[in-house]
Structures are given as structure tokens and as C-alpha cells.
Amino acid sequence: MMYELVIIGAGISGLTAALSAWERGVSSVLMIDYQKRRGGFTLPYWSSDEFAPERELLEKAASLPYEIHEQSTVVGFFPGANGQLHQLYVQSPMGTYSIEAKKVLIASGSLEKPREAHKIPGTRPAGVMTPMMAMQLIERGYQPGRKIVLIENGRISRSTAVLLEKETSNLVKYAESDWELTSIKGLSRVEGVQLRNRMTDEINEVACDTLIFAKGRVPCTFFLKGAPIERDQHDAIIVDATGKTNLPDIYAAGSCTCLGDDDHTNSMELAKETAKQLF
């Protein structure tokens, strides 16, 4: 299988770039995504108002004629030297296959950084989760918790709160800007959290059975381990303002790059800019 362009990731950036490629008349495009549906990791939050532009994007993208391989994950990436084709290895429900591409756009997004990355002291019970886990549990018919503490620090956590408030009345929000999460308690399931007021140093012990917290992002560049595509110390792909990586015909856009942001707010913009360079 050979394509003009392979887009890794069908999230905000990938779909934006795909639409732009279609507008420019490029026909040989393949999209590959780890998830079962297009939309990317932020899809669960899109029913919130703050994701209205993304919802619109998804509607437009529904008419895209491009092939899209879902539940398919790139596990190996071998850039072609001197204008040769790039080779990608993809893991899918049918097994592993390889594809070749003239150009590759990496738009693989990012995951939410959990409490462990921030050395939050305390125990490690069930019930400590990021918004992404909470939303996935709800999707499966589970309730994440009965008394939830949510740390608000951006549009993802704000949207999660809006959606959770529909499910439960027992949600307490703390703004990250005012409160620092200082400890987690509970043996098997969360029993409470401790928060410190950044201004007054007041310590607040809150009883709860669930903590929803994430801060920062984990760029999904796991498949680039060992590949010659340059990444920064946070594993984000190093790109210039036009999405160029250090290698020819390999581009990257969105929250998997060093220019992306934790809340995926500038992903569309970055992808549009990058798409202009592609063709």
C-alpha cells in the first residue's frame, strides 16, 4: 500500500489537516487512528460548549472520502532517506501490516499527565483518575464516583465538570490556580484529598471517593522511540512554525509537538498552518 500522504492520528489536528488536503485536491490520503472512532483523545469532551469548533470539524470531516484505519496504531516508523518512501508498521485487529508514504503528518495527539508525574504524596487507591478515564468509564455505563473532587485547570477539566454535573450532584471543583493538591488518602478506594491554598496556606481536607486530576500532557510519540525524528525533553516532536520536523517530508502538528498545548486549543491552527506546507 502506497499513499501520497499518511496522517497518523484522526483527532483535531489530523482531521483539520485532512480537510485541508481534500480542499487542495489531494486524493491519495490514509488516516490511521488508535481509537475506534475518529475525533481523537478529546472527543469525550466535545459535547461541552468549549469544544463547539471541534464538533463542527467532526461534522465536516464526516464527508471526507479518505480511507481511515481505526483501532490501528503505528508501532514502527522508518523514514526514507534521500527522497525514498517512508515506511510505517501498523498494528491492527487483523495483525501487523506495512504501508509506504511519500509524506507523513504526525498528528498523534497527547494523553493527560496523571498524579504520578507530579509526585503527589499519599496512597495509590482506586478512584484517582484523569478526565479521560472518568469519561471512558461513563461511556461504558459506570459512574466514576459518588463524591468527586475535580481539579480545574483548563478547558478539558472544565468540560469534564460540566458533563459530570449531569451525572452526579456530588461534585466539588477546586481551581488549580488557587489550590495545590498536596496528598491523597485511602487504602483501596480514595477516602479524601488534602489541598493547600496557594494564597493563605490554609489546608483543606476533603472527604471524597474520587479524584479527577491531570496536569500537563504526554505526547503520543511512543512509536518514535529509536526513530531519527527529533523530540524535546518532554518527548514532544520538535517542529518549526510550519510543522516541519528535522526530516524532509515528515511533518507534525498539534499536541504531539513542542508547539501544542495541554488543552489542545491551538491544534486546529497548527494543523491548518502545517497543511499549507504539505501540498
Partner: peptide, 18 residues
């Protein structure tokens, strides 16, 4: 579903499918 030790329930109750 359990996380690890006894009573480490990952979700507290089975609600309605959304």
C-alpha cells in the same frame, strides 16, 4: 472491576448507559 487489592473498585456503581 477491581484495580488491585480488595475493594479497590475502579467505578463505584453501574449507572445507565449514556
Amino acid at each position: 472491576p477491581l484495580k488491585g487489592v480488595r475493594n479497590s473498585y475502579l467505578a463505584v456503581a453501574q449507572g445507565e448507559k449514556q
